[in-house]
């Protein structure tokens, strides 16, 4: 008992409580060399419609890319893409080209942005608050340009689902009514429990307690969930359980046998585009 007591005291004295949530984000350098020469011909864009912008998010600057006519944000349908856990928007330039040609050349406006600490965006992403602030900075701009809920489509891909979930659950200044979740995570606890095989809650290592299942329960709009059965980054069993909590007006799922986390690469652009486009037009 004396030994146990000594260990307990020692642990309380020694523990420094580092939070690993900031380290969860794999942001890195970005060049933002968005040119057609890096795209397959079918995904070329009108280079006059490439707009690199920056917004203030708390004390940091968040960089974003808009493809389309800024003057038409007030009338166009806009796809807001929340990208996955790669260094910067550079890694998603091809995805941007695909979206810019979805349903025809520049049929939809497209926007994506780098979270804090990704690409040229300053600061560090640290969890729910920073993700929400960055999202809000971008959406507030779109709102100021006249975008309304009926013309907003949010696509949360992998890490982006962590920002898309709370936004869909009421955290967006433009209410979301069309949401695509591509290979989403589920809860912070699931990540901890899948890593340890034990019933440990995420609070053992982080204060970032995202719960996309709860977000889906609170989301009233339309949802398209896309996932591969062999996804080792966001296991399908738990993603499915989270997505099926959705309680909104319309639910559609597109699950692909054998596909991994890089869903679009595994199923091909044609299939991916068709499913997303059908959902948007639904």
């Amino acid at each position: 008992m004396r030994l146990l007591f000594t260990l307990l005291i020692a642990s309380l004295v020694l523990q420094s409580c580092a939070d690993v949530s900031a380290a969860m984000f794999a942001g890195g350098d970005g060049i933002y060399d968005f040119k057609n020469e890096w795209l397959e011909p079918q995904y070329h864009v009108d280079e006059t419609k490439i707009h690199l912008m920056d917004f203030q998010s708390d004390d940091d600057t968040v960089y974003s890319l808009y493809l389309g006519d800024i003057a038409q944000i007030g009338t166009d349908t806009i796809i807001l893409y929340l990208h996955g856990n790669a260094k910067s928007m550079d890694q998603f330039w091809e995805t941007a080209g695909l979206f810019a040609n979805l349903g025809g050349s520049h049929h939809f406006g497209f926007m994506m942005y780098d979270y804090r600490g990704f690409g040229k965006s300053t600061g560090r992403s640290t969890g729910e608050e920073s993700m929400a602030a960055d999202y809000d900075a971008v959406v507030s701009y779109l709102q100021s340009q006249g975008l309304t809920s009926d013309r907003l489509v949010v696509v949360g891909s992998s890490l982006g689902s962590l920002a898309a979930g709370p936004a869909a659950a009421g955290g967006s200044s433009i209410p979301i009514n069309k949401l695509v979740m591509e290979a989403p995570q589920s809860t912070a606890n699931v990540i901890m429990q899948n890593a340890t095989g034990l019933s440990l809650p995420a609070s053992m290592i982080t204060s970032y307690k995202f719960d996309i299942g709860q977000n889906m329960e609170d989301y009233t709009g339309e949802l398209l969930w896309m996932h591969g059965t062999e996804d080792a980054v966001a296991p399908i069993e738990t993603a499915e359980a989270a997505m099926q909590k959705h309680n909104g007006s319309y639910y559609q799922e597109a699950v692909y046998d054998g596909a991994e986390h890089g869903l679009r690469w595994d199923i091909g652009d044609e299939e991916w585009s068709k499913v997303v486009l059908d959902f948007i037009r639904h």
């Binding site: 030994l3 307990l8 020692a10 309380l12 523990q15 420094s16 053992m204 290592i205 982080t206």
Partner: peptide, 20 residues
């Protein structure tokens, strides 16, 4: 033999892990 232990790595991340 009785023993007790502590994991410093868990401690650094914010979890007090003790074993006896």
């Amino acid at each position: 033999t009785n023993y007790g232990g502590i994991q410093f790595s868990s401690l650094l991340l914010g979890a007090v892990q003790l074993e006896v």
